[in-house]
Amino acid sequence: MTHWFTKGQVWQKYKLSVLLADLADKGKTLIQAAGFVYFVREYCIELSVCMGPSMLPTFNTRGDVLLLEHITTTFGHVRVGDVVLARSLQNPKQIVCKRVLGLEGDEVRVAPSTHLGEGRMVKVPRGHVWLQGDNTLNSTDSRHYGPVPYALIKGRAFLKVWPPHEVGLIRSYVPEPFGYQSSR
Rank of each mutant, 00 (worst) to 15 (best):
M1E: 00
V49R: 15
V18E: 10
T140L: 12
L16S: 13
K26C: 03
T72D: 07
T114L: 04
R126G: 00
I45M: 12
E176H: 11
A24K: 15
S88M: 03
P112A: 08
I95C: 00
V174I: 15
R126T: 08
T72I: 13
I71H: 05
M1K: 14
V161K: 14
V96I: 15
K98C: 01
V108G: 02
L66Y: 04
M1W: 02
I45T: 10
L56Q: 15
L89P: 05
A111E: 12
R87A: 08
K123A: 09
Q32E: 00
G117M: 06
Y150F: 13
G127L: 02
E118R: 11
V80I: 15
K13G: 12
Y180V: 13
M51A: 15
G168S: 02
L66R: 14
Q94E: 09
D82E: 08
A24D: 06
V65L: 12
Y145W: 14
G105N: 06
R120D: 10
L116Y: 04
A24C: 04
H144S: 11
R87Y: 04
V110H: 03
V148A: 06
W130S: 01
T61H: 05
T6W: 01
W130A: 04
E69V: 01
C44R: 01
G168M: 04
W162P: 02
T61L: 02
V96F: 07
T114W: 01
Y38R: 11
K93H: 06
V100E: 02
N60T: 04
Q9C: 01
V167E: 04
V161N: 10
T2S: 14
P57C: 05
V10L: 14
L16P: 02
A34N: 11
L66I: 09
V80L: 10
I71A: 08
H165T: 08
F178P: 00
N138L: 11
I95L: 14
L89S: 12
L47Q: 12
G63T: 09
T114G: 11
L20T: 04
V122C: 00
Y180H: 15
T74F: 09
R87K: 14
T136Q: 13
V100Q: 03
G168A: 07
W4V: 15
G8A: 14
L103I: 10
A151K: 15
L20M: 08
R171L: 05
L68F: 03
H115A: 10
L152K: 13
G127W: 07
Y173F: 15
G179P: 00
V65F: 08
L101H: 09
T72E: 09
Q181R: 14
T74V: 04
R109E: 05
S54C: 07
P53R: 11
H115T: 12
T58I: 13
